[in-house]
Design a protein around this nucleic acid. Structure first.
Length: 449
RNA sequence: GUGGGUAUAGCGUAGCUGGUUAACGCGUCAGUUUGUGGCACUGAAGACCGAGAGUUCGAAUCUCUCUACCCACCCCA
């Protein structure tokens, strides 16, 4: 391992140039699909007042209790400690932005999406970083189950477009505050006699958030949880029909799902629908996408009561899954033309030609190291240049040079005057049309042969 | 926060039970008769063997501590 004076912080990753195409691929997919569904991009601050996350994510959750990067900011509010936190997720901030900018007074539903980095102080492992990247969407202003289906459909479209297979969709309903209260009581009644045998964290859960008793992975606890009451039996009429309609819409759209009554999201704001897309190919942290409805959140954050829902998708996990399934990434474009030169005059000419070409958006490069011709050609090959030109004294005298197709080795003359850019662009287009067609093309008129 | 694993040049590895100048592949750079890449050949640069301490005449190879990374628990994206 190479050493730098300072190394990157634990749980962070560099994306080096040879990998960037994966991110561009994924971000492209995610944005184009979101736009196809009518979602608009939003950008929000990287940090927010700590209170925002405490109120929304929930003060009993692990995320808030032990995973936030926070600083106090005593001086910011007339001596009152405002305190800031690097966002651990995207929903809180984007909902805050919807409220603060009055967007909930515009036509509803508001449909927004974002790509952003999130920060959680956890111990890193496969698919889990301290700084990770999330694509997310939020739809505010509808309680119709069609919205739930639409949002799930968007997530599914993204995974499909990315070329993924075997991603399982699990859905559940955790009810509204009324039916959930009844269910929580039922859970407490059920677990109470077993409490003695159960783990410490479950004791805590029993008190603070009984829903998560279902989630415990410990053998004894999960064994006990097996026969626990199921939330779906406790849903009120409204929640039940909402959930049933959602299922009907999903089936109508041919989106396969399974109902998993054990899904309990770790963020407190969820109501009714919750869902997860899970990959089995990337280790134990297989949740690629998770989300649900949060009908109470906007009011809780000071907005007018507005039902809403959304999801977050882990971009690192999405890329990991694509890699493990050998999905295709879009390759970056390489250099269009490398202009090699010998001697100072030719070097100047090369730089000048590069400038002209770049004005037309051509990826043009020339020697900036002072290498010999052979080395320049090797470099042109390494950077995968499509064409090359060699400039020396004789070319400058004659006013023309030889343009070489680096893939086929084919060469032709190209004038070194005002027509250079025009001719080269024609060659480039021919090249892009296809290698085979290129060979059959008669470009003699252009090149003046 | 709790466990387990790993740690040798830019990358990937070899180096067995301790013994002279730490090896190989890829990569990088320079050449292979003077103005042309991909192949081949030649050569060069590049590692105080994660850090610190200890055992020993002698350690990359043994012991201890630390750190980082990886994996799992937990939690979530």
């Amino acid at each position: 391992m190479a050493k730098a004076i300072v190394q990157r912080p634990t749980g962070t990753k560099d994306v080096i140039p040879s990998q960037i195409h994966k991110w561009n691929t994924v971000e492209g997919i995610v944005k184009s699909q979101a736009e196809a569904y009518g979602f608009k991009e939003i950008r929000i601050p990287t940090f927010e007042e700590t209170g925002l996350f405490v109120r929304s994510v929930g003060d009993t959750t692990d995320v808030v209790q032990k995973e936030m990067y926070s600083v106090s900011a005593t001086s910011d509010r007339n001596g009152v400690d405002a305190g800031y936190t690097l966002r651990p997720e995207g929903t809180a901030g984007s909902i805050r932005a919807l409220i603060e900018n009055g967007l909930l007074n515009e036509a509803l539903p508001q449909k927004i999406f974002y790509v952003l980095s999130c920060f959680r102080h956890e111990k890193p492992q496969a698919g889990r970083l301290r700084e990770f990247h999330q694509f997310g969407v939020e739809m505010a202003g509808t309680q119709d189950p069609r919205a739930d289906a639409e949002v799930i459909s968007l997530a599914k479209s993204i995974l499909d477009t990315a070329g993924l297979r075997n991603i399982q969709l699990n859905i559940n309903s955790i009810g509204c505050p009324e039916c959930r209260a009844k269910y929580q009581q039922a859970l407490r009644d059920y677990f109470k006699p077993h409490l003695g045998k159960m783990c410490d964290t479950c004791h805590n859960r029993y008190e603070k958030n009984p829903l998560r008793l279902l989630d415990c992975k410990s053998e004894i606890c999960s064994e006990i949880a097996k026969d626990a009451p199921v939330i779906l039996d406790y849903l009120c009429d409204d929640c039940r029909t909402h959930f049933e309609k959602l299922q009907n819409y999903l089936m109508a759209m041919d989106i396969e799902f399974s109902i998993n009554p054990k899904i309990v999201r770790g963020l407190d704001y969820y109501t009714k629908t919750v869902f997860e897309f899970i990959s089995n190919d990337i280790g134990s942290q297989g949740t690629v996408c998770g989300g649900g409805r949060y009908d109470g959140l906007i009011e809780q954050l000071g907005g007018k009561p507005t039902p809403a829902l959304g999801f977050g998708m882990g971009l690192e996990r999405l890329i990991l899954t694509m890699e493990s399934q050998n999905a295709e990434f879009i390759e970056e474009e390489s250099c269009d033309i490398y202009i090699a030169s010998m001697g100072d005059d030719a070097a100047s000419k090369a730089m000048q030609l590069c400038r002209v070409l770049r004005e037309d958006g051509v990826r043009a490069e020339c020697d900036v190291v002072g290498r010999g011709l052979r080395a320049q050609m090797k470099y042109a090959d390494k950077i995968n240049a499509k064409f090359s030109v060699v400039l020396g004294d004789s070319e400058l005298e004659e006013g023309k040079a030889v343009l070489k197709n680096m893939q086929s080795g084919e060469q032709c003359d190209i004038p070194l005057d005002d027509r250079f850019g025009e001719v080269f662009n024609a060659m480039l287009i021919a090249y892009q049309l296809s290698g085979e067609e290129f060979e059959g093309l008669d470009l003699s008129a252009l090149t003046g042969n």
